[in-house]
Amino acid sequence: MKALLISLASGLLTLGGLHAQTAATTTTTVTTSSGTLHQYTPGSTFVVKETSGPVTYTYGPEVVYATSGGTVLTPEQVQARIRVGLPVRVEYANQGDTRVIRRVLVEDDDDEVEIEVDD
């Protein structure tokens, strides 16, 4: 009886190993594009005016907003900084004909140039 149980357990482990070996892998290519934010409604509309014209993006399940230096923005910072006319870089993955946003990059505050005006 013990030998039968050991044989069954061994067979199940072998089948499990074969199933794991045949599992498919998928590769997602992330592309970066840049332009000026043309239309923006949080969570719904994200259109970037690129050199080829306006391009519409779809929000992915988890969109990360960050500075060009890599600092991830909090929801409050996103609300304060993301606006129409802002230069952005968009990292996205194609799903069919749809561009799905993964990450939006904006300039660091340190990148902004202050202009002094003499009175």
Rank of each mutant, 00 (worst) to 15 (best):
V72W: 05
A66Y: 02
I6L: 11
D108K: 08
Q95M: 10
H38K: 07
V55C: 02
T58L: 15
V55P: 01
G70K: 06
T31F: 13
T27E: 13
S68Y: 05
Q79R: 13
L8E: 02
R81K: 14
S33H: 03
T56M: 07
D110N: 10
T74Y: 07
L15G: 04
K2G: 14
T29W: 09
I82D: 01
H19C: 07
V55R: 08
T71S: 11
A3Q: 12
T58R: 13
L105M: 12
Q21E: 10
T45I: 13
D108N: 15
A20M: 13
G69W: 07
T71L: 10
H38A: 10
V48E: 00
S10W: 04
T51Q: 14
T36S: 10
G70A: 04
Q21T: 12
T25D: 13
T14S: 14
V88P: 00
T56F: 06
A20N: 11
I115H: 14
V117L: 15
S44K: 15
Y92P: 00
A23S: 09
E62N: 14
Y65A: 00
G53C: 09
S10N: 05
A23R: 11
E114P: 01
Y59V: 03
V55W: 03
G11T: 11
L37D: 02
R102V: 14
G60T: 08
R103D: 03
G60V: 11
M1P: 00
D118R: 15
G43D: 06
T51W: 10
T22C: 04
V47D: 04
D111L: 09
P42K: 05
V55T: 15
T14V: 15
G69C: 03
D108E: 13
G53F: 11
G43W: 06
E62L: 13
G70E: 06
G17T: 11
G69T: 08
A24Q: 15
Q77D: 11
Q79W: 02
V100C: 02
T98Y: 11
G17R: 06
P61E: 15
Y65I: 00
Y59E: 04
S33M: 14
L105H: 09
T26M: 13
N94G: 06
V84G: 00
I6S: 00
M1L: 04
Q21M: 09
T36V: 14
D109Y: 12
M1Q: 00
T74A: 05
Q79L: 07
S34T: 08
G85L: 05
G11K: 03
T29I: 07
L4A: 06
E62K: 14
G43C: 01
V106K: 00
S10I: 08
S33W: 05
V90Q: 01
R89M: 09
T71C: 01
E76T: 09
L18E: 05
D108F: 05
V64P: 01
T41D: 06
T67V: 07
S10E: 02
A93E: 13
Y92M: 01
A3C: 03
A23H: 12
